Simulated scan of single mutants.
Amino acid sequence: MPRPKRGTLQIKPRWKKLLTGYAFLSPFLVLFIVFTVVPVLDSIRLSFTYYNMLEPARFIGLANYRILFLDDDIFFKAIQNTFIFSLVTGPVSYMLSFLLAWIINQLRGKSLFAFAFYVPSITSSIALSVVWLYIFSGDRYGLLNHWLIDWGIVSEPVLWVDDAKTILPVVIVVSLWMSMGTGFLVFLAGLQNVPKELYEAGAIDGVGSKFQELWYITVPFMKPQMLFGAVNAIVASFGVFDIAVAMAGMPSPNYAGHTIISHLYDYAFIRFELGYASAIAVVLFVLTFGLGRIAMKLFSSKDE
């Protein structure tokens, strides 16, 4: 075996493999740090200042958080609406995405069905709101009101997007219809990668029905996809904005459709109080990060 020449730098195979991995990962790390980590840290810094884009940021300590939690009633209304929305759309969209992917995976022409369910999630929210505003129009010409009056269920039109009691349910329905997005595709891809040998072994061990296969074989094998889908559902449910504004306006009647993102948008891009908006963003970040960690605890494997 030839000896290495003197003066050449010798790198152990383990370190060489590690450095090679980091070299391939470096473009993503640079972009992640520049466009994610730095903005988050800068938002935390701005949350302790008064900043209106016209004057230099002025440090005011915890004043923004004191106003946010003690004096801002609209923020608590936004928190309430967002949590109600998330508690409904998060679990329901998550289970719907998985169950529909599971059903479609057993059908012929699964690609066509997958495309049909995925298209609404990539269509513009503003474009889709035109269709849904026709369905939920508050006059007799609205599709839903027309059906309800013809069937004798109601005697006069319901103001679906003008009544504070019905705005949030309407937004929830539309959001659920649009929720078959990335998580749905990940579930479908994960189902197609479950080895058939596992189902054959399960049949030998007494696993007979499709639901037993789902519970004892499919779900345990798909924990990484289940984790991704859970985090994706949490982020999507807390990030609702476009549909709420398109359906109910900005602000909505009696702030019935006002969410955390709507509140953030109001202070950041309408009032230009970026310090206060940054405080709202930090609270939203803490909420989504905390719920994401809980999802990781629930779906991560014990040996990881």
Results as ranks from 00 to 15, higher is better:
102 W>E: 06
154 V>W: 12
149 I>R: 08
147 W>T: 09
195 P>G: 07
148 L>C: 09
171 V>Q: 03
7 G>S: 12
137 S>W: 12
54 L>Y: 12
263 H>S: 13
115 F>C: 08
242 D>C: 11
303 D>R: 09
153 I>R: 11
179 S>K: 00
6 R>T: 08
233 A>M: 04
270 I>S: 09
250 M>W: 08
291 L>Y: 00
100 L>E: 00
259 T>F: 14
226 M>Y: 06
124 S>L: 10
117 F>M: 11
70 L>Q: 14
32 F>A: 05
59 F>R: 09
113 F>N: 04
77 K>H: 08
27 P>Y: 11
170 V>E: 05
95 M>S: 13
143 L>H: 04
59 F>W: 13
295 A>P: 06
299 F>M: 09
212 Q>L: 07
291 L>F: 14
113 F>I: 06
78 A>K: 07
225 Q>V: 07
9 L>R: 14
146 H>I: 01
278 S>D: 01
202 G>S: 10
223 K>F: 05
208 G>V: 12
129 S>I: 06
184 F>K: 02
127 A>V: 13
201 A>F: 03
165 K>W: 07
296 M>S: 11
85 F>T: 00
107 L>H: 09
11 I>R: 03
297 K>T: 08
131 V>P: 06
80 Q>S: 11
104 I>V: 15
47 S>R: 06
101 A>K: 01
231 V>Q: 07
286 V>T: 13
221 F>V: 15
77 K>Q: 14
139 D>Y: 01
22 Y>Q: 12
258 H>E: 15
211 F>K: 08
151 W>Q: 11
93 S>V: 00
193 N>L: 12
159 L>M: 13
191 L>E: 00
72 D>I: 03
132 W>C: 05
274 L>H: 11
297 K>F: 13
75 F>Q: 02
232 N>K: 12
94 Y>I: 00
281 A>V: 02
18 L>F: 13
142 G>S: 09
177 W>K: 07
